[in-house]
């Protein structure tokens, strides 16, 4: 079997616990894959280690056990091919918006002339609709605009993989919506593999092709992979009108509210298979509705009512 584009293999991360003597296992023996060009999303409660997974993927943290292979290479440190959009924009406040992007561009292309670097940076600022604000310092920009600069900085690297760590969680609902639209429109132009952490169910449904559901920590694992059954062409405004929206949404909410906790309390329920089961929640009247697992067995005993079981 060919390896997926991003292959997470037996990933375990332990931290020293509060007493300093023992260790705290955040997650254990994670296995999952993301295909090239896919938009994958990890959803789970705080403390399940989703940010840690992203940090390991970014090369900013190393796993206690296991490894990640991304784009055919073993991940053992940060790379310009894996750009990160940080939760708090992480812009350098002493640099203008343009200079922040230029810093990234000149890191990617050290031999480029000043003009080349500037043009490339401006192109990506224009992509996030920030042309005209390029000479402003981050302090003069709104929260949404700062995050747009962060997105432009990451995209300007033209990375193979884009990692987003709850990129919109610090923003108000209106700004968040506008930025999600922005990501959708960028997505239609640039086909990158994207790995995003979120705790917002609707954000995951709008943006992701594949949603990894994580149980609560400690010793969290990926309980299942939900394939987004909503049509590819979707928009934030009519998301809730799509027939599969509520089955999908209920499935995710059900998981976050009850199953993530119950599974954490009963680690014996963790299946023996390495790869988490794939689930496709659909409306009941859908004739091809199916929930299947890798092994072809029913995914798990607790299906929410609105998702149909084969």
């Amino acid at each position: 079997m060919q390896k997926p584009f991003i292959s997470v293999e037996g990933l375990t991360r332990r931290f020293p616990d509060a007493s300093g003597k023992g260790t705290l296992t955040v997650f254990e023996d994670l296995w999952f894959g993301v295909e090239e060009g896919e938009f994958a999303c990890v959803i789970g409660h705080s403390g399940c280690g989703k940010s840690t997974i992203l940090n390991v993927l970014a090369g900013l943290d190393s796993p206690t056990e296991g490894s990640i292979v991304a784009a055919g290479k073993h991940v053992d440190g940060p790379s310009l091919d894996r750009a990160v959009i940080f939760q708090g924009h992480a812009l350098m406040p002493w640099l203008t918006a343009l200079a922040n992007v230029e810093l990234a561009v000149s890191s990617r292309h050290p031999k480029w002339s000043t003009q080349q670097v500037r043009d490339h940076a401006m192109k990506y600022l224009a992509l996030v609709h920030l042309d005209g604000s390029e000479d402003k310092k981050p302090a003069q920009l709104s929260g949404g605009m700062k995050q747009r600069v962060g997105i432009a900085r990451a995209l300007s690297l033209e990375p193979r993989i884009l990692l987003m760590d709850e990129p919109f969680s610090a923003l108000d609902a209106l700004t968040r919506g506008a930025l999600q639209d922005e990501v959708l429109s960028i997505r239609s132009k640039i086909k990158q593999t994207i790995f995003m952490i979120t705790h917002d169910v609707d954000e995951a449904l709008l943006l992701a092709d594949k949603i990894f559901l994580m149980t609560n920590g400690p010793k969290a694992w990926v309980a299942e992979v939900v394939e987004n059954t909503l049509p590819k062409e979707r928009s934030r405004t009519d998301l809730h009108k799509l027939p599969n929206y509520y089955p999908m949404r209920n499935h995710l909410i059900e998981f976050l509210v009850t199953r993530s906790r119950e599974l954490a309390l009963n680690p014996g329920q963790r299946p023996k298979e390495r790869m988490p089961p794939i689930v496709r929640p659909m409306a009941i009247f859908n004739p091809v509705a199916a929930v299947t697992s890798e092994a072809g067995k029913p995914a798990h005993p607790m299906q929410p009512g609105s998702a149909s079981v084969a």
Binding site: A58, L60, S79, L80, A83, V84, A90, M92, A104, S107
Partner: peptide, 29 residues
């Protein structure tokens, strides 16, 4: 100096000298 700025420098694969002059020095100035 904020960890997130150093993380940005790391993900941009900046070498220690470039990190010192482009990130740490202006941040600590």
């Amino acid at each position: 100096v904020r960890k997130e700025w150093l993380n940005v420098a790391k993900t941009l694969e900046m070498n220690p000298v470039r990190t010192a002059f482009r990130v740490i020095l202006p941040a600590a100035a």
